[in-house]
Amino acid sequence: MSVTAAPKLAAPRRRWPAPVVWVAVAVFLAVHVLAWQATEFSPATLIAGWEGMADFLAESLPPDFSVLGKSLEAAVITLYIGLLGTTFSIPFALALALLASRATTSAAWAQQAARAVLSFLRSVPDVVFALIFVTAVGLGPFAGVLALVFHNTGVMGKLWAEAMDESDRGPRDALEVTGASGPQIALHAVLPTVLPSLAGLLLYRLDVNVRSSLVLGLVGAGGIGFLINQSIKLFRFDKMVTHILVVLLLVVVVDQASGWVRKRLGA
């Protein structure tokens, strides 16, 4: 068998990006120039102002550990705000997720309505909810819990609805054939299938909410955020550093704990 050289094929011509790509790149660059100007982005200012930061650090070191007890107490309150804010949003998030997911709700209007409610709750930042509730229930952790319940319902409801959307269609079809109703299918096909993902998302949200409740403290919702705010206002940066170290500890502990449980869940 003789081997003949393959005829030389003409290589396809190299193609340049289409004009629309060039336009997109130009717009992208222009927006960044505008943003650079609007945010007064200036590395020179940062370098020139290094003394301010140095003063700040000098005043904050060594940390004043006399406030450690108070700090830990407040950190526990911050943890509690995050915890209640997460647990109390479970029933609302579950109800709205069941309505919003196409795996559990076939009526398009109900899906749309539930999604609208969820995206409203999600788009209002928890800090704004906190400021609103402070006017109703006064300064303190309770306002923080309420704020988290509202915002977290929006975020967790959406995440849960997406998890349900992605659940296997098969068991749903199988139960539909047995004559099961929509709520029965949700109860016996969708929820048992997605439970580990829902639990994993719940823990992830707990993690985020504990960190958020810190920021809520800054606007008066109690906890360790409130102490940080106080010590800044009194220029007691040495106390502030103690609080921040405690925050660091809290965040790491919650993050590790929820990560550990999520790993066990396989979600």
Binding site: D173, A174, L175, T178, H188, A189, P196
Partner: peptide, 26 residues
């Protein structure tokens, strides 16, 4: 009329008894 599928379509995380019970949901 009941249906049996190629991909079986049981809820894998639940036990056999619960899966069989779900046939009675109708």
């Amino acid at each position: 009329a009941a249906m049996v599928f190629q991909k079986i379509h049981l809820v894998g995380r639940r036990n056999a008894l619960d899966n069989v019970c779900s046939g009675a949901l109708g």
